[in-house]
Design a protein around this nucleic acid. Structure first.
Lengths: 241, 241
DNA sequence: TCAAAAGTGTTGTGAATACACCCATGG
DNA sequence: CCATGGGTGTATTCACAACACTTTTGA
C-alpha cells in the first residue's frame, strides 16, 4: 500500500493526556509548563513521543509518570480521539492520540522531564479560555471533558474519581463538579443505590464529620448504568454537538 | 521532546474505514479483498497510508474512493479510535486511525487500487466470526458497530442511513437492522415525531406501495436526542462494556 | 372485500422531580 | 438544643410498553 517510502517517513506520533480529578469540589486538570521548544514556558497537557515498539497506551502512562511523577495505578485511562491536522505542531507532522484519565484526589504533581512545573488547575480556566494552552490542547481538553460529562450519564465512570470507600454524597459532588450543576441529594441517593451494580454498601458509616453519619460504599460491578443518570437538558431541542 | 530521532522514524500511520449501510433491511459493511501483501486475498477494511501533509480525515475519504469508487459526499464520517499495538501489522509499526462511515443505500462498489474486489457484506458475518478479516480489523468492526448502535440511542445518526425524503418506517428499519431487534411501529412513530428536531415533515406522502401511504420526512436540525431512544436492556444489570 | 402497512387511542406501570420531613451526629 | 448534612416519604408529572383499533392504499 505505501506509495513512495519517503512520503511516510516524516510522521511522528505522540500521546497526550487529559487527567481529571476533583479537588475541593472543583474539576481540576493536570497541566505542565513546557521546558523545551516549541512553546517553552507555555502550559500544556502532559504527553510525549511514542517509542518504537511501544504500545500507545504505555506511552501515555510513561509520559505521565516522567513529567508529573504520577503513577498510572488506580487511574482510569481511555482513549478519546486522535488529532492529525498537518499544521498542529510547528516541528512538522506530529499526530497525537489523546487520552482521558480519571483519578481520585492525588498528591501534588512533581515536575520531571521536559516540564518545569506540573500543577492541578481548575478545568474552567482552560475551558473559558482564561488559561491558554500550547498546540491544539484546548480543543483536546474540551473533547475530553465532554466525554467525561457524557460518560457520567450512562457508565459508572464517576466512581473512578472517588477513593474507596466513598459516600453517596462524595459521588454526588463528582457529578456536580463535572456537570457544573447542583443535584437534589435525596433523589440522587435513591437513584444511585437503586441502579443495579453501581455501588455496593460496605456496611460501615463515615464518622467524625458534622451531620448524620453517611453509609460507605465501594464500586459495584456494573460498567454501564441502566437506566442512565441523565443531565437536565434545558430547552430540550438538542442541537448540541 | 524526541529522544533519539531514530526511535520515531519507523512509524507509519493509516486510516481504515468501517462503512455501514442498510441493504434489504440488513446492516452491511463495505469490505475489500486485498490485492497486495500482507494478507493478499484476505477480506479487509478499506484504508491506506496517510500521506505527508494530508489530514487524516482526508486520507480516509481518498482511500475510500480509490479502493471502492465510493465518493464521500453525503456520507457521515466520524473517528472511532486509534489502534496502536506494535505487532498489529507484519510490515512493522503501523498505527491506524479507524473511522465510522454511515451511508444510505449506495450502488455496488467498484474495486480500485490495491483491491481485487469490493463488496457489501452483512455485518453479522464479520461479527459472528464467519468471515475472517485481515489484521485486527474484526476488533475495529466490533468497536465501530457498537459506536453506531449506541449513537442511535442519543443522536440523530439514524437519519444518515436514509435517503431523503424518508418515512418513519424507513427510520424504524434502520434501528431494527442496527440493533437487531424489532420495534413497535406505533410507539416508534410517536417517539420519533415527538422528539424535537429529529425529523421534519415534508407534507407529502409516499405512494405506490401497499398499505396506507406514509408521510415523508427530511432530517431535522437536532444532533442529540432528548429524551434518548434507548435500547431495551434485558436483565438490566448493566455489566456490559 | 381482503391483506397490508401507517398511525392514533388507551391504559397500566415505572421512573423522575420537587419538596416535606425525619435521622443522627458535632458543637 | 441547634445546626448540619444524610436519607426516606410522597404526590405529581412524565414517559413508555403493550396492544386494540381506525385509516388508506394495492391486489
Amino acid at each position: 500500500m505505501p506509495r513512495r517510502s519517503g512520503e511516510h517517513a516524516q510522521l511522528r506520533l505522540t500521546a497526550d493526556l487529559v487527567i481529571l480529578t476533583i479537588r475541593k469540589d472543583v474539576l481540576n486538570i493536570l497541566l505542565i509548563k513546557r521546558g523545551n521548544d516549541p512553546f517553552p514556558g507555555s502550559w500544556a497537557l502532559p504527553g510525549g513521543f511514542v517509542s518504537r515498539d511501544e504500545p500507545v497506551d504505555r506511552t501515555a502512562l510513561r509520559e505521565l509518570e516522567e513529567e508529573t511523577g504520577i503513577a498510572g495505578e488506580a487511574l482510569h485511562l481511555e482513549q478519546v480521539r486522535t488529532y492529525g491536522a498537518p499544521d498542529r505542531d510547528p516541528r512538522g507532522r506530529v499526530v497525537t492520540v489523546a487520552y482521558l484519565g480519571i483519578a481520585p484526589d492525588l498528591p501534588e504533581p512533581q515536575p520531571g522531564t521536559d516540564a518545569t512545573h506540573a500543577a492541578w488547575t481548575p478545568a474552567d480556566r482552560v475551558l473559558e479560555g482564561k488559561l491558554k494552552l500550547a498546540f491544539d490542547h484546548r480543543t483536546i481538553v474540551e473533547d475530553a471533558v465532554e466525554r467525561a460529562r457524557s460518560k457520567l450519564e450512562y457508565t459508572s465512570l464517576a466512581t473512578a474519581f472517588c477513593t474507596e470507600p466513598f459516600t453517596i454524597a462524595d459521588l454526588r459532588r463528582v457529578y456536580e463538579a463535572v456537570w457544573g450543576e447542583t443535584l437534589d441529594p435525596g433523589n440522587f441517593s435513591r437513584k444511585v443505590t437503586k441502579t443495579d451494580g453501581f455501588v455496593e454498601p460496605t456496611g460501615d458509616h463515615r464518622v467524625g464529620e458534622t451531620g448524620r453519619p453517611p453509609l460507605l460504599y465501594r464500586r459495584g460491578k456494573a460498567v454501564t448504568l441502566y437506566p442512565p443518570i441523565l443531565r437536565t437538558r434545558i430547552g430540550g431541542s438538542g442541537s448540541t454537538a
